[in-house]
Amino acid sequence: MAGIRLAEGDTVVVRMPNPLGDAVAATAFLQGLKRAFPSLRLVLAGRHPGRELLAGLDFVDDFAVVPKVKNAKDLWRASRSLARQEAAAAVVLPNSWSSALEARLAGIPHRIGRPGTRRRWLLSHVLDPVGPPRPMTDFYWEFLAPFGDALIDQKPPSPTLSVTSEEKALAHRRLAQEVESEAYLAVAPGAAFGPSKVYPLDQMAEVLRILRQRLAWMPLLLGSPSEASLLRELAELLGPPVISTHRQIAGLGEMKALLRRSRLLLTMDTAARHMAAALGVPQVVLYGSTDPRWSAFQLEDTTRLWQTDLPCRPCHRPICPTEHECLAGLEPKTVVQACLQAIATE
């Protein structure tokens, strides 16, 4: 497979993964690509949430929003959005068939991706299959190989995010309307993947009550629109004082700024963890059904907890068919101790 040669000022479109945590992990690859080709016009393509998440990154030149492909019309719109970039190459980070087809229909000459279900013919440069669990930063770093084998031998930079002045203003306005606090303990209790990744709310409330008393930090509950009821339930179990965003869910931009204002994040294995790590905020991460090897990157300020003696995990099932022992078995006192140790090393 011949390497891809880029001319001065060429455009490369990177089709970003839809899961937000994966998009954060992919920023290491984006930095490496821009570092190797400083004159490159780097255009990201993805859904609206990805644009908000990655706003303000100085190594990204543009973001092309593509629709979710539900029919032929959506596919045509997505491919036209890519075609308008007049790119020399497309890096297709998702493993979906539609994302590869979008790049092919856009007429982009070089199309890099992994072989998925019947999509090898859609790509000009086919990488190795997904393979065994490994850090997602390494998984995406391997996409540099077609641009030069020596590039992947370099150490990937850390994933990063930026907080814009507008996002900071949103967070400031929200916190100014709440109970004043000198320090915030951010909590992201939900998981889009499914309930198998969610710590039981009564146990989470117990953890937060203890930490609130010990530290005098204000719990700050964060989540997506689909998690509003979960945030409300946790706030009711915990009782005041607490700041919950369930009435007015914070967008991803504001969420970045709220995380930046926090001293610690207590979270599941979700995008919130990767966002906090990319922003330099310490995290305590509770793992349920998922394999921690995929998220084993940027661990300098990360404390990870999971049950090591359960034969059923990691099962990667969104709903546990048994007693949810992988998370229910994590005692609140263990989580509290992990949080106290995490802030002791700040």
Rank of each mutant, 00 (worst) to 15 (best):
W141R: 09
D301P: 14
S96V: 04
L252M: 03
L231M: 02
M1E: 15
A87H: 07
P225S: 08
I319P: 08
A191C: 01
A36C: 12
L299M: 11
A169P: 07
S262F: 09
S196R: 06
V198N: 00
L231V: 01
P156M: 02
F147I: 09
P67W: 04
I210Q: 15
R209I: 01
T302Q: 14
E233H: 07
R118L: 13
F193S: 07
P94H: 07
Q85S: 13
P159S: 08
L234P: 11
S99A: 07
G113H: 04
R80Q: 15
L44G: 11
Q307M: 12
E167Q: 03
P67F: 02
S226C: 14
L252S: 02
Q341H: 10
F147K: 05
P219W: 14
I210T: 15
R118K: 08
F59G: 13
A45F: 04
D138C: 09
M275Q: 13
L266N: 06
G190Y: 02
A257Y: 00
V66I: 13
P129R: 08
Q298L: 11
F37E: 11
C315E: 04
K256Q: 02
T137H: 11
R41C: 06
V126R: 06
V198F: 03
L238A: 06
A78H: 03
A26S: 14
V126H: 06
G253L: 00
I343S: 11
A271T: 00
W76M: 11
L42M: 14
Q307S: 11
V92C: 06
K70H: 14
D149A: 12
L175H: 00
V281S: 07
R41W: 04
A145W: 15
P38C: 12
A89H: 03
C320N: 00
R84M: 12
E142S: 08
C315D: 06
V126P: 05
L221R: 06
L175S: 00
L42H: 15
A78G: 11
N95S: 13
S224I: 06
L185W: 00
L170K: 07
T245G: 04
Q283S: 12
R119G: 08
R77H: 12
R114E: 05
A338P: 11
L299K: 15
E86S: 11
I152A: 01
P109N: 00
H125F: 08
E254T: 00
R293F: 03
P321S: 03
L340Y: 10
T290C: 06
R134M: 07
Q283R: 13
C320Y: 00
A28R: 02
A278F: 02
D301I: 15
A192V: 15
E300L: 05
F193H: 09
E166Y: 03
M1A: 14
L42Y: 15
V281Q: 03
K70F: 14
R134P: 04
R173M: 08
R174F: 11
A169Y: 03
Q341M: 08
T27K: 03
A45T: 02
P17E: 07
L327A: 01
K34Q: 13
L75E: 10
R41Y: 05
I4F: 05
G194S: 05
A150R: 14
A83I: 09
L54A: 00
A235M: 01
V126N: 04
P311M: 05
W217Q: 01
L237T: 07
P38D: 09
M275T: 09
L54Q: 00
P67K: 06
P314M: 09
Y199F: 09
A64N: 10
P115W: 01
